[in-house]
Write a protein that binds this DNA or RNA. Structure first.
Lengths: 211, 211, 211, 211
DNA sequence: TATGAATGAGAATTCATTCAT
DNA sequence: GATGAATGAATTCTCATTCAT
């Protein structure tokens, strides 16, 4: 069972165990599907202990959501990507994209349960969608736009494309690629094949499908 | 509220009302979040009536799921797309893609609640993922591959690209585009702007972002 | 078990049963001491049924309180007393007081559990004290003042006494008399003795203890 | 908040703090309404500490009850009253009663929370009612009867009145007077008015309301 | 001794499902 | 068939009590 790293949140031992358990169960069964009894069992604490740390069950979710958005924003979207995107020494756009895809795949692997929880809740709650937009999407777009401008200026990427649309295109490409691997479980192919496939994805992003 | 067309299922009047209500509420609050009382109220029937038509609440979901997958497969993915993709008279790839995107946006608009229900349940249940894969994804891929081959043969699309990867790329592009419009509510722009934006999306799909 | 008459409230059958059970148990064990399980058992309904009629357990109490104050105001304080106090034909003050005491004892007997519930809650909640003051005390004082004035005018009662203080004196006398009988259970004495005792109480009220 | 004097009980420092806190909270919220956490907070000790001094929460109540009855018996009913009632030098009955009322009002003020706790518990528990009767009521009656006899013998009070009934009358009068001041918060009137009112109360007790 | 985190039995409340009408 | 009141198992939450530190 790969536990999600919540160490940076400086939680108390049991509090973290409860959150870990809740993330796992919420992602497996949804917020309503997971009972406090199950969460307690999974966390290895008494049911009552949950309510020492979280006033209500809903509070567990809110705490996760808050932390998820922050962690996703910080760890998945920004950390790593920033370094790769803005690395002045790396001039080759293909290498950059490849690094990003590999990096993203690892991150998604690690944070998948949390992402699932947040995606589902985003479906039901406007305020979560807004938080995602402000904390994650906006920051990612800013970062990418900066990168795109730089590469466009240096003649590597097209000048007449709206970076926002380019961003969406790349995100859609990579996102669906990762989703397929992750959801359809076709992940454990030989690395070789994955490597080749990533190359092909990048080729399409860069050169399109038109002959 | 635009009701989803379930007429083809030849349901009894109340049965259809219950399904309509359930789709609406499941998509808004999730399966567990919607109570049978609420569904009854929304459907305009007594709570007990629900259980005349569906043995359990879970059965409502299953019935929706079954029908959704069939309808999505039939109406969203195949009907319309087939005609467009395989229209021998239409040679211009840009026009084809544009038609498809417009068509998809309308369909998604119409079937959004159902899609939401199915997506969430797919997260929790392997068998639904499988059903989607077999009923929807596979068929779409088959259709697209056929189309791609044809266009590649006629020299319009690149010959050395795996149609599967091309498909994913297009789907990712269009999917995220529609999702953004749909979820972030930036749908009701002037058609003019949407039109321009679709053109740009297609340009990227066809020619890539590399200078 | 003497049930309290709630018929005038036009409640549904189960709703009344629940209220009856709650009054009994709240008066025996207090609001917190009585569990919804016990109330359900006593009322002869399922625990869930309680929450069909009352959103929360607290709502049962509030409903009782509302009704109690109204019933006490209406049935215990006003109905009966009014007729006795303002009966123009009855000139003898002793007879009037005797009638009232007898009448009160019967009423208290009948509504004792309700009164207990309200008294305890009044201890904890300012708003209930206020309600009692406005609905019960004020009306009783008004009624009594009117009566006192009339009797003072006709030379039966002292003119130089504040009716409010006279009222408190009578209430204190009668109240403690009834409380003693009720609480110390010395109720089932021979009627003869009670009759004699009431005469003595009235004598003190009218003539005082000074030689 | 004026603390109740428990010094005579020779309690340990924390034990007394806990009792003080419990009296305050029990009187405000009732025994069940006050949690051990709150009591600990109010007492300034840890929750666990409570259970070092008292085996169970119920034991706190029992300890209070025991002490209350003793203190009420000793301090409120007997001490002070004894001296006043049996003061051979004071011949004027009005002065005696006035002294007693003033004294009682001060005591009630001081011990109100304790009295509230005991009254509520008396409602629920026969044995407490019995204890009150034996420890407080009986002693008070004995004391008063002795006093009444003395005053009747010296021709100040009526000879043909049952001292028990006279006692109840006085107690009812004074009790309701104090309760009104205390509960309806009309306490902080000018002393002058209170003084006048007490005079009127005593007049009624002594001479009655009949013209 | 004192602490307060942890416990778990028990309380309030929810809600899918049943069934008499 | 249709109804909706009634059910009670399951769930969330509370709080007196314990116990390792």
């Amino acid at each position: 069972m790969n536990k999600i790293d919540l160490s940076e949140l400086n939680l108390q031992e049991k509090e973290e165990k409860i959150l870990q358990a809740a993330i796992k169960l919420f992602s497996q069964k949804g917020f309503r599907g997971a009972t406090s009894k199950e969460i307690a069992l999974e966390a290895g604490v008494a049911e009552g202990t949950i309510f020492k740390y979280f006033k209500t069950k809903k509070d567990i979710l809110n705490s996760i959501l808050l932390n998820i958005i922050h962690i996703i924003s910080d760890k998945i979207i920004l950390k790593g990507v920033k370094e790769i995107l803005l690395d002045e020494n790396e001039k080759d756009i293909k290498t950059i994209l490849k690094k990003i895809i590999y990096d993203r795949m690892k991150k998604v692997d690690q944070y998948f349960p949390m992402m699932q929880v947040i995606i589902i809740e985003a479906i039901y709650h406007e305020n979560i969608r807004l938080a995602i937009y402000n904390e994650v999407v906006k920051k990612a777009i800013d970062l990418f736009s900066h990168f795109y401008q730089q590469k466009a200026d240096s003649g590597v990427l097209k000048k007449d494309i709206d970076p926002l649309i380019a961003f969406r295109s790349i995100l859609g490409n990579i996102g669906l690629f990762i989703a397929q691997k992750k959801i359809l479980g076709q992940y454990n192919n030989s690395n070789n094949k994955i490597d080749e496939e990533i190359d092909k994805v990048i080729d399409i992003i860069l050169k399109g499908i038109e002959a």
